[in-house]
Design a protein around this nucleic acid. Structure first.
Lengths: 121, 121
DNA sequence: AATCGGGGTTACCATTTGGTAAGTTATTGA
DNA sequence: TCAATAACTTACCAAATGGTAACCCCGATT
């Protein structure tokens, strides 16, 4: 067992997973990898089905883990901006692998995601 | 939204994640990627903390999703062997990325996993 | 004055996930 | 004969996760 910050990990993969596991984390990170900077509602609109509570929770955890950073653009009215940190960006190969794997799988099942993308509005 | 087999996915990444999300799945797959073929107890011993119930559940799901295959070597006594299918093997880049990312992170935190491995018996 | 949009929080509840412990069948070794 | 090992299953319970809905402030638009 590996011990770090009072937590135990069975192996390095376990360490990595502790950052990105959670129902929406990878999806949020991948979105930010694509768009550079996004507001709360922009992220929400890109993840059909996520509730504001969930989004808020996951963003907080990602921020705590230093994978994303939040800038408050103005207090009144309250406007924010989320973006990946360097640590967050270091997961990019993960997002592209998962995205490519998923597109491959879809293709084998008769769905051409890239071609049909306009259908998924 | 992408529809496949009565389920909905927000994007290709979501499709990929549906196969490998779950507390122990990636760890089990990565172990099988390393060892080719393993019995039930061999896997369990490699994942400190997993219960037999969990291992049994996760193996069943992985088998149902065709990421691993199970061979029954003998009925009396009951002996089995698990290994990755070709689909399972196609996730290998994922395992190596996560493993390398984890080792990098550990190194930045003063832990040299490769060097200290013998300590983690 | 009322509504919309941005960016949230809170309370409550249901579902899912995970943990513990015990039981099962069968063989091998001391 | 007793214990250990392999490969599970089952029952019961606790904790974590996730969903719904309502509520908050604030400013701009209609």
């Amino acid at each position: 067992m590996i011990k770090l910050n009072d937590k135990e990990y069975t192996c390095p993969i376990d360490v990595s997973l502790s950052f990105v596991s959670g129902k929406w984390k990878i999806l949020i990170l991948a979105h930010l990898a694509q768009f550079e900077k996004r507001g709360f509602s922009e992220i929400r609109e890109n993840l059909p089905g996520i509730s504001e509570k969930m989004l808020s929770q996951q963003l907080k955890q990602l921020e705590k883990d230093h994978l994303i950073s939040k800038s408050v653009l103005s207090l009144k009215p309250y406007r924010v901006e989320y973006r990946l940190t360097e640590t967050g960006k270091s997961f990019s190969p993960l997002f592209s692998f998962l995205s490519n794997w998923g597109m491959d799988f879809l293709k084998k099942n008769g769905i051409d995601y890239l071609k049909d993308q306009q259908l998924y509005k």
